[in-house]
Write a protein that binds this DNA or RNA. Structure first.
Lengths: 95, 95
DNA sequence: ACAAGTGTAACCTATATGGTTACAGGCTGC
DNA sequence: GCAGCCTGTAACCATATAGGTTACACTTGT
């Protein structure tokens, strides 16, 4: 049912990529070709994973770009669903 | 392999939701609770599907918000992959 | 004490979403 | 012909996001 608060992709990135390799934020950012601030912002849940960042992560960690964007999608969607009740939309489909 | 240029979600929206119900852009926008310009911009591939818009579509057409965002993800990712070669990223993982 | 790593604030930029208004073109019916 | 409706879109606005640089304070290890 996927009803639980999905973690921010930044948490996953830190736990699954940086920590196992004992990478510092500074070093990882340098390798990714982004600023230390950009990576820190993701790791601390302040910024989402952009399509370009997903491609960078896939290159550096030999993973799937789609999986990163999918985690971001789940995270964004979960928060968007919280405002579902406040949107006034008329039903147009059959049922 | 999903290697083909994915269609913009706006095309799909028009063909699968508006046309079957004989909905005008004006009427659909009113029902969705957004401006006619916002919907037109999506239908013509100029704007992506935002999380909030995905929830609106799911309410109006009794569909899954996730499916709309997934289509958007595929579309965005396909374009982001095109710049993969121009990004300088150092490999950090094992292989 | 000093160096390294970290989070983050302040500032800049570019881009994206979406609203309102207004216009021009295409139909359709009278 | 003309009125009415639908459409795309331009111009303008506000807001939010992503990312860059610089600088600062804090913590930790040597």
């Amino acid at each position: 049912m996927k009803m639980h608060n999905p973690p921010h992709p930044g948490e996953v990135l830190r736990q699954l990529c940086l920590e196992p390799l004992n990478l510092t934020v500074t070093d990882a950012a340098r390798s990714l070709g982004v600023s230390r601030k950009a990576l820190s912002s993701i790791l601390n849940g302040r910024t989402g994973i952009s399509p370009e960042m997903a491609v960078r992560l896939s290159m550096a960690f030999n993973t799937s770009a789609e999986s990163w964007l999918n985690q971001q999608l789940q995270y964004d969607l979960w928060h968007a669903e919280k405002s579902r009740k406040s949107l006034h939309v008329a039903r147009l489909s059959a049922a």
